[in-house]
């Protein structure tokens, strides 16, 4: 007999959530007078229909995976790190700064790229630590602090692009002057993806998985997240642990920003974070903060993003439809989880 706490029971609810999200999205499309099957078909072709497409999906997957990885740690500590967008942006700014300072130096391109990555990590950590300090010492909820810092990060980017870092004679929404090809992370011939960034993304999630599953630090972090007061009473310095979570998440976000500069855009552009921070929050919620699922679900979201570009081309539909599906998935999963918990709780009563 099915036990209400059994994984099968839980899985059933998740399937229901997915079905619900699909039905919801289909209804939205029908309301928009769009052919749903054709739209789904196009998204599939647009994401896995050719080697080039798969490579583009991977390009989008890596920063998303890095952002999700970082968020798993802040979520574990019970923190809503909405400020991750700003942390990605600051990572990109620091990487750009490092490259600008060093591009004319005698250092080897490989070394400059490495310094670029490290600078990005530093930038993300600094920005995340601001949210952390505001939270722990200023009593500012991390959601508000992070949101505010996101705005500051965007303003800073635009100021740099149209101000001190503008192209000769003219500021342009297309960003700063692109870096020399030598400072690009090496790409696979004829494709936009890079084995190096793929490696970084995969190592990132493995590291987070190990931290959360196999270390004392991870265990205590989860204790802080589950019940901060109790954790404090049994002697865990909760503030220190929250701060560490912010630092590590900021490092991952900064790395994502560095990847955007070194492997994707090769310059600083106005919306360099590409919304991967917010998308990462959705992925983390969808997988119920289980690191094991981060890679496949982030890949699925990246595929939706890339595949949906076909919609405006072929069906003249807005490609934000993929966002509807992504949002619906998260909502339905959370909702079904809530329903399940309620029913389980009743049974216990």
């Amino acid at each position: 007999m099915l036990n209400k706490t059994s994984p099968v029971y839980k899985f059933g609810f998740q399937i229901l959530a997915i079905v619900g999200a699909l039905i919801f999205t289909t209804v939205v499309m029908l309301l928009a007078k769009a052919p749903p099957l054709e739209a789904y078909r196009l998204i599939v072709i647009g994401s896995v229909g050719s080697v080039g497409k798969i490579s583009d999906v991977i390009v989008a997957w890596i920063p998303l995976l890095l952002a999700t990885s970082g968020l798993l740690l802040t979520f574990a500590a019970g923190l809503w790190n909405i400020g991750i967008e700003g942390q990605i942006t600051l990572g990109a700014i620091f990487t750009t700064l490092a490259l600008r300072l060093l591009q004319d130096s005698a250092l080897s391109p490989a070394l400059i790229i490495i310094i670029g990555f490290l600078s990005g990590i530093l930038g993300g950590m600094i920005w995340a630590s601001l949210t952390g300090l505001l939270k722990i010492y200023g009593g500012v909820n991390e959601i508000f602090g992070g949101l505010g810092l996101n705005f500051v990060a965007t303003a800073l980017t635009i100021w740099l692009i149209f101000g001190p870092w503008k192209r000769p004679g003219v500021g342009s929404m297309s960003g700063t002057v692109p870096f020399d090809n030598l400072l690009w992370l090496p790409q696979v011939e004829g494709l936009r993806m890079s084995w190096w960034s793929l490696g970084i993304g995969l190592i990132g999630i493995v590291v987070v998985f190990l931290i959360l599953q196999g270390t004392y630090f991870g265990l205590r972090l989860k204790a802080v997240g589950k019940n901060g007061r109790a954790a404090f009473i049994i002697g865990i310095p909760t503030g220190k642990y929250m701060m560490s979570a912010f630092f590590i998440c900021g490092a991952f976000a900064g790395l994502a920003g560095a990847t955007q500069v070194l492997a994707v855009y090769h310059r600083l552009i106005p919306s360099i974070s590409s919304g991967y921070g917010f998308l990462g929050l959705m992925v983390a919620m969808l997988i119920n903060y289980q690191a094991l699922w981060a890679a496949p679900v982030a890949l699925f979201f990246a595929a939706l993003n890339i595949g949906s570009i076909q919609l405006p081309i072929v069906l003249k539909l807005d490609s934000t439809l993929s966002g509807v599906l992504q949002g619906a998935l998260v909502l339905f999963v959370l909702m079904m989880d809530g329903v399940r918990r309620r029913l389980t709780a009743k049974k216990v009563n």
């Binding site: 929404m173 936009r192 081309i313």
Partner: peptide
């Protein structure tokens, strides 16, 4: 086609989509 409205894409990438069509 601008980085604010189509985050995560570049015009060159979108042009390839058009070519593939």
């Amino acid at each position: 086609v601008n980085s604010a409205d189509r985050p995560g894409t570049t015009p060159a990438q979108l042009a390839e989509d058009l070519v593939s069509k």
